[in-house]
Computed example of a mutant assay.
Amino acid sequence: MNLRIQQDCSNIDWEWVRATLKRVNMAYFNAEIHKKAFENSYAVVFIFDEDKLIGLGRALSDGAYQATLYDIAVLPEFQGQGIGRLLVENLLARLPKCNVILYAAVGKEEFYQKLGFKRLKTGMGMFLNQKLMQQKGFTE
C-alpha cells in the first residue's frame, strides 16, 4: 500500500463518503449533509491508497479540553491493516489536551479499547430516532 493522509476536505467525493458509511453499517445521509458535517468539524482525516479513498474520520472539539470522534470508517477490504488505528491516532494527535469520547459502531468496541478508550458508565444519548438506536443496540 502507498498511503497518503489528507487533513482537509478538498477534492473529496461526498457520495463516496455516504456510500462507505452505508456499506460499513454506520449512519449515513445525503452527500451534502456529510460535506457540511466534515467541513464544520474541528479536525478531519482522509486516508488514500494511491488515489483511492479507503478511510475517513472527523473530530468535534472546543479546542481546549473536550472532543468527540465521529464517522471513523474504513472500507471492509482494508480493515485489519492498521488503517483505523492510523485514522484515530491522527485525530488524537490534533486533540492533545482534550478528553475524547465517541460511540462505537456495535461490535467495534474492542477496537477502541485496544486504542485506550474505556467504556463510559454515565454516558447518555438523545437521538432523533430513539427507537432505531435501541434496535441497533446503541441504547437500552
Rank of each mutant, 00 (worst) to 15 (best):
I47R: 00
E109T: 09
L53D: 07
Y42D: 06
L60W: 04
L69M: 05
I54S: 08
A27M: 08
R4P: 01
Y42M: 10
T20G: 11
P76D: 06
Q134R: 11
L86I: 06
N40P: 04
E110R: 07
L87N: 07
C9M: 01
H34V: 09
L86H: 10
A104L: 02
M133G: 05
R94T: 09
Y103W: 14
W14E: 01
T68Y: 10
F48R: 06
C9Q: 01
L21I: 11
D8Y: 00
N40C: 01
I33K: 05
F29D: 07
R4V: 08
G116A: 10
R4L: 06
Q113W: 11
I72Y: 04
R119G: 12
G82S: 00
Q113L: 10
I47P: 08
R85M: 08
Q113S: 09
Q6S: 04
P76L: 06
K97D: 13
K52W: 00
L75W: 03
D71N: 13
A43L: 05
K118T: 12
N30D: 15
D8H: 01
E39K: 02
F117Y: 14
G80S: 14
V24K: 03
V106I: 13
F29N: 12
A93S: 14
R58Y: 03
C98A: 13
I47A: 00
F117K: 05
K52D: 07
A37V: 10
K114Q: 15
R85S: 14
A19P: 05
K22Y: 03
F48A: 03
A73M: 08
F38G: 01
L92G: 11
A105N: 14
V106C: 06
G116S: 09
A93D: 14
M133T: 08
Y28S: 08
D71F: 08
K35C: 09
R18Y: 03
I12D: 01
R85T: 15
Q6C: 06
L56T: 02
K97H: 09
Y28E: 09
N40H: 05
